[in-house]
Design a protein around this nucleic acid. Structure first.
Length: 286
DNA sequence: GGAAGCTCCTGAAAGC
DNA sequence: TGCTTTCAGGAGCTTC
């Protein structure tokens, strides 16, 4: 599942292989993949044709390719999205949704492949800060040098919610998904139901540090791949799944204390934690 | 307005 | 063997 490290790996690959190239055409093979582009497939292709990719940027789990100064191609990988740079003669992938070709054919085409179609591509105007307007509500991510830790702490204290919900709220801190939330909380020895209103300034700082550390470690080995659903632009998997401490390790011993890791259903997904290192808060928020 | 829950989607794995 | 159910989860939308 692509979270910040995986998206950053893709961003770096796109910058290398797509940066500076001019779009020759676009083919939309599944309408759901451009559902956020409300003007439809024809408009999507017409507006892309002839534009040049001037940069490849990221905020949290969103990627965008500025196409001049006024608008950008926005991408979100969702659960299973892949942006692949493939030689044009490569057979189509089973779940190929969008194909973008460039004027220099020999350097390959860009393919958006997405099994579950939670992700997609769309075109949007850039706001004065250079951000696609539809993601202006997305907070800076913890690897962004301008991430405001004090403001994050104040926001946490104001919320009547729990710490994992807050970590997954992209308007508070972006780039964190279920895997790295569980990993960071394990490192910080915090239970996922801990109320944010009770976090100390030091507690917030430690949590953010653990989020940064786990993401940086994942980035260093190409991200986390459990199956073929996350790969970089060359179709290669990452290796961080081998280094996960709690996520996906139900019943296995905690790497710190040896207690069996537990999995609990949580918000239509799962939370993994060590019941000894991460004690249940006495007064959970209702 | 804030917080919580629902829904979209596909395919692998488990259960029968 | 084959059918059904469960599970995975990001984020927009709806409900309270």
């Amino acid at each position: 599942m692509p979270e910040l490290p995986e998206v950053e790996v893709v961003r770096r690959g796109l910058a290398r292989w797509i940066g500076g190239r001019t779009v020759a055409g676009a083919e939309v093979l599944h309408p759901r993949a451009i559902r956020r582009h409300v003007a439809g497939a024809g408009d999507f292709a017409d507006r892309l044709r002839g534009t040049a990719v001037t940069d490849v940027r990221r905020r949290g789990k969103y990627l965008w390719l500025p196409l001049g100064d006024e608008f950008a191609l926005l991408a979100h990988l969702g659960m299973s999205g892949q942006l692949l740079v493939q030689p044009e003669r490569t057979p189509d992938e089973k779940h190929l949704r969008i194909r973008i070709t460039f004027t220099d054919l020999a350097r390959g085409e860009l393919r958006f492949v997405d099994q579950r179609t939670f992700g997609g591509l769309s075109l949007h105007p850039l706001d004065p800060a250079g951000l696609p307007d539809v993601i202006s509500h997305i907070a800076r991510d913890p690897l962004d040098e301008d991430f405001d830790e004090d403001a994050f702490h104040v926001a946490l204290r104001r919320r009547r919610t729990t710490v994992k919900r807050a970590l997954l709220d992209q308007s508070l801190i972006s780039g964190v998904g279920n895997i790295y939330a569980d990993e960071a909380l394990w490192r910080a020895r915090l239970h996922y139901e801990r109320p944010t209103a009770g976090l100390s300034r030091r507690g917030t700082a430690e949590l953010v540090t653990h989020v940064r550390e786990v993401m940086t470690a994942a980035l260093a080995v190409g991200g986390t791949s459990f199956d073929s659903l996350y790969v970089n632009v060359n179709g290669e998997s990452g290796y961080f799944s081998r280094a996960l401490d709690v996520y996906g390790r139900e019943g296995e011993p905690c790497r710190r204390c040896g207690t069996a890791v537990r999995r609990r259903p949580w918000m239509n997904r799962s939370s993994y934690f060590c019941p000894r290192c991460q004690r249940v808060p006495r007064l959970p928020v209702r």
